[in-house]
């Protein structure tokens, strides 16, 4: 079989554009997912039963459905929902890229919720008591005392989840969003160079994910020493 990697060089600007979108999607989903996931975790741990049940329902639903399906749903449902809210005649055009951003934030929130919940529960109850005893409110105690510690304890797990997320973003090809894999697929099909392009993409993913997970491992052992 003739392999011609020249095709990769020519396509680099386009691939770079796709790669930037992949990174943007990963970072947005991680930040938004962590934010909403933390709120969900606090809701799940709330003593208000209705709140904790609602949060648990959301998390269990999201975690029980394949990501591909969730992406499909949102792609078709978000325009319809927006139409319902705005009362427009036709569903507005949201675009695959923006739909994917929203989908990933909401999907990742469910996973980050479980990580943060474990993190919050790993903090001894005495910490909350001593924060309360000093006159801090619930919100202050969480923001200033519990969550910073939970976040630190869970940092390796959170980063591992981000690496998984980085790989998962490639699934947006199902709604034809042009991420790194999507860009490569388009070039591959245009130039009939599937093996070269997919090999190149695989190597990039491998190098990045492997390096990141080594870094997480080192971070983990450093955190273990501090504690």
């Amino acid at each position: 079989m003739d392999l011609d990697f020249g095709v990769v060089g020519g396509a680099l600007p386009y691939l770079w554009k796709g790669f930037r979108y992949t990174v943007e999607l990963t970072v947005t989903a991680a930040a938004g997912g962590l934010f909403f996931g933390t709120l969900l975790a606090l809701a799940r741990l709330s003593s208000l039963r209705s709140l904790s049940l609602a949060a648990a329902g959301y998390v269990n639903l999201m975690r029980s459905v394949p990501l591909v399906l969730v992406i499909f749903w949102f792609f078709f449902l978000v325009p319809l929902m927006l139409q319902g809210i705005t009362g427009a005649e036709r569903p507005p055009q949201v675009g695959a890229e923006r739909t994917a951003l929203l989908t990933f934030v909401l999907f990742e929130a469910a996973y980050f919720c479980e990580i943060m919940r474990a993190g919050i529960q790993s903090i001894p109850k005495g910490q909350l008591h001593s924060a309360y005893a000093l006159g801090l409110s619930y919100a202050q105690a969480m923001r200033l005392v519990i969550l910073p510690q939970a976040l630190r304890n869970m940092l390796p797990v959170l980063l591992t989840q981000v690496i998984v997320l980085f790989q998962d973003t490639s699934l947006v090809y199902v709604i034809s969003a042009t991420d790194f894999v999507g860009a490569a697929a388009k070039i591959a099909q245009r130039d009939s160079r599937l093996v070269e392009m997919y090999l190149f993409v695989a190597i990039v993913y491998f190098v990045l994910c492997f390096t990141l997970s080594r870094l997480v491992k080192r971070l983990q052992s450093r955190l273990a020493v501090v504690r």
């Binding site: 005495g126 001593s130 309360y132 006159g135 005392v145």
Partner: peptide, 21 residues
């Protein structure tokens, strides 16, 4: 207002409960 009341009552715990971070 419990936070206000607690601010006036000092408490020392068995396991110290300083904030480690």
């Amino acid at each position: 207002n419990l936070p206000r009341l607690r601010a006036k009552v000092g408490m020392v715990f068995q396991h110290f409960e300083l904030f480690p971070h």
